[in-house]
């Protein structure tokens, strides 16, 4: 159940592109044709599925405060978490390079369809973002980390597939000249993001009393939203109280 919840949450509610804007650069640059979008999307799922669990292990056994205690008592006080950026990005860059070599060796056909996108991915914010969110959301087990990696990868894949399909069709529409290309893509993505926000109620089933689905670390927007909700609730409470006083 926990796995299923995290899986759907990372695909729809915390969608990489629409909720946190990760990997926007390649999302905008490579979404002109559906076929290339599918290639890049598949590569992102693949790399996220490898790097998130790997960085989870790094985080648990090397970086977290006290993580080094498996080496012995005297190491228990070390806190290396300030190194996480450099460790994560080094892991990602080397893994991408390694995956490229392995895929080229064992599956030339996969390499041909995936290969040109792999170097692009090392600098894709979605990959580093996946690892950083994994760290800040304190995912508990290796299985959940793998699940989170695959889920966010699929979310990113869906997003780039959808925008590529829309961009192929929009060529036949009469868009104002100044808005053509980049401008309209931004606005469409904004509209799609509004649509994806409606998935927010999915896990609670619209039940206000259900357990909260958003974690406070997610982003400013989420926190803002929570504050808004609380404010609205307080206001309505106040009104009720005033009315009853009358």
């Amino acid at each position: 159940m926990e796995h299923l919840e995290l899986f759907f949450k990372s695909i729809f509610i915390d969608n990489m592109v629409f909720a946190t804007f990760l990997g926007m650069c390649s999302y905008l640059a490579v979404s002109k044709k559906v076929s290339t979008a599918v290639g890049l999307g598949a590569a992102v799922i693949f790399v996220l599925a490898i790097t998130v669990p790997l960085n989870w292990l790094l985080d648990q056994y090397i970086l977290q405060p006290g993580a080094l205690s498996w080496l012995g008592e005297e190491y228990a006080n070390y806190d290396l978490s300030f190194l996480s950026f450099i460790m994560f990005i080094a892991t990602i860059a080397t893994m991408v390079q390694l995956v490229e070599i392995v895929v080229e060796k064992f599956s030339p056909s996969l390499y041909n369809s995936l290969g040109i996108f792999l170097p692009l991915i090392a600098v894709n914010c979605a990959i580093l973002g996946g690892s950083l969110f994994m760290q800040s959301r304190e995912i508990e087990t290796l299985g959940l980390a793998l699940n989170y990696g695959i889920g966010s990868g699929i979310g990113w894949f869906l997003a780039i597939l959808a925008i590529a399909a829309i961009r192929e069709k929009i060529r036949y529409s009469n868009v104002p000249p100044a808005l053509r290309g980049l401008g309209i893509t931004f606005i469409i993505t904004g509209l799609m993001a509004i649509g994806f926000m409606s998935f927010g109620g999915m896990l609670t089933g619209g039940d206000e009393e259900g357990e909260p689905t958003t974690e406070p670390t997610a982003s400013i927007e989420v926190i803002k939203e929570d504050i808004k909700k609380e404010e609205a609730k307080l206001k309505s409470d106040l009104e009720i109280a005033e009315n009853t006083n009358k």
Partner: peptide, 20 residues
Amino acid sequence: MLLSPMALIVVGIIIWIQRS
């Protein structure tokens, strides 16, 4: 305006103004 989608739309409008 505080929700994430509006950021995209605001940037889209900036691009629109600049290009026109």
